[in-house]
Design a protein around this nucleic acid. Structure first.
Lengths: 110, 110
DNA sequence: TGATCACTTAACCAAATGGTTGAGCGAAAG
DNA sequence: CTTTCGCTCAACCATTTGGTTAAGTGATCA
């Protein structure tokens, strides 16, 4: 167990699950407890808690104790880093790549 | 085989692996063959080919036959969709969330 | 105090993932 | 034609993932 995964690995992996993306979407509107996050998720409470744990390890959410509840708050920095990565590779070379792609599709039958 | 995964699932999952992100990074500069993509990846040829397959199923790359090679070209649309998703949830509520987060950290010792 | 509520942790399980080797296939080269 | 090259596919394996249930912890309530 070497704990070698990068932040990008953790963040993108965390976002690759629909239950966790739903959590992020709801947390973007207001902070929610683990119980509230679990509610719409046809799944056991413990299962939802594990999903929150994945988001937390990726740095995407922080859990704060509030009595016997845990209030989950979205953290913007890891999402911002992911946004920058995707933005860089999704927009910079578009024109050039699109031109190449068109050329290839014209020359081919497959 | 129920084929129920959404595009977002496939795209974020594909980006959650460092070998595949390296492929995307290199493909953002020029189209490359599977062999070229495999080169820097301390891994068997077949292994790299499977990674390309994951990117292809997510729609992130397209493979074009060119003689006995396959030229891989980055597709901008799925990355653009991922960018929009992340952008929406990483920027819109920042100020509001940051304020909440500061308040929570002040009230707490954990 | 004792019960209940909100949540985490541990143990477990099936399925998916990331890797391997080896066989196979079409295109290119000799 | 035969060989080699670039690549894919199938089978296999270990580890991780996404889920479960059951037990444990600590805060609140009656």
């Amino acid at each position: 167990m070497v704990e070698r995964k990068s932040v990008a690995d953790l963040v993108f992996h965390a976002l690759g699950d629909p239950s966790r993306r739903l959590m992020v979407e709801r947390l973007s509107q207001r902070a929610l407890t683990v119980g509230e996050l679990a509610e719409p998720l046809n799944m056991s409470f413990a299962g939802a808690s594990k999903h929150v744990g994945v988001l937390e390890k990726a740095g995407i959410v922080a859990r704060h104790k509030r009595g016997r509840e845990r209030l989950c708050v979205l953290q913007t920095e890891p999402l911002e880093a992911a946004r920058q990565w995707v933005e860089h590779y999704s927009t910079f070379w578009n024109a050039r790549l699109d031109a190449l792609d068109r050329a290839l599709r014209e020359d081919e039958n497959d």
